[in-house]
Amino acid sequence: MPRTLRGALARPFVALARLLVVLGLLACAAGCAQTRARPLTPDDTVRAAQLLLTDRCLRAQGLAPPRPGQPPPSKAEQRRVVTALFGAGRAELRVELPNGYVVRRHTDGCLAAAQQRLYGDQPRWFAVSTTVDNLKSKAPQPDRAAYAVLREKALANARAVLNSARTKGTSP
């Protein structure tokens, strides 16, 4: 496999591994110190629900969600997980930023499904979050307003997902 492709396949795992470490520490802190546990921040709540949803999606496809500290899966397994997580084929969503940079995303895959569940409109969330995240305060006001509305919706849905998991006895 060409070195650039290997690097491209590894990058999502590195980012996911970092997220999993943070969420693992948060979960441990919440579980290990019940009397001193602090509520999750809104960002952490949405991330935890997204991780739970993507894990469920991967498991439903017979794939093991990647976790820090686990032995790395085979290259073939990594490709299957990356494809299941991020989608395959041509990216269906596209946003061109004012600097000419184009960002693309799939609407299939476990991450897209989790975003659809949390935000209610994955294509709209992709468009406004890409614009707001890249342009910050220079993002158009309608995009910033839509970002805030969709983020609140995601937070409410994330709380429902995590509460449901807690009620059913599954770990978030």
Rank of each mutant, 00 (worst) to 15 (best):
R59L: 13
L40F: 13
A154F: 06
S171K: 12
T4I: 08
L25Y: 05
A156P: 00
S171C: 11
V128G: 07
F86H: 12
P2M: 04
A76W: 02
Y101L: 13
P98C: 08
D55S: 15
P42C: 03
P42K: 11
T107H: 11
T130K: 12
L26C: 01
R166A: 15
E152C: 01
L118S: 04
Q122W: 15
L63M: 08
R67G: 07
Q141G: 01
R104I: 01
T131R: 15
V22L: 14
Q78A: 15
P39Y: 00
A8W: 07
P65N: 03
S74H: 06
A112N: 06
A165F: 03
M1I: 01
S171I: 03
A114K: 04
P66D: 01
A113T: 02
L25G: 12
G31C: 13
T41K: 13
L26A: 06
L97F: 03
A8G: 09
L52G: 02
A15L: 14
L97G: 04
A139F: 01
A29S: 10
R117N: 05
A37I: 05
G109M: 10
P12M: 08
A160R: 15
V21S: 09
K153D: 02
W125V: 00
P42E: 12
Q34H: 12
N157I: 00
R104E: 04
A113R: 15
R124A: 15
R105T: 01
D44W: 08
Q116K: 07
R94Y: 02
P42G: 08
R47A: 15
A113M: 05
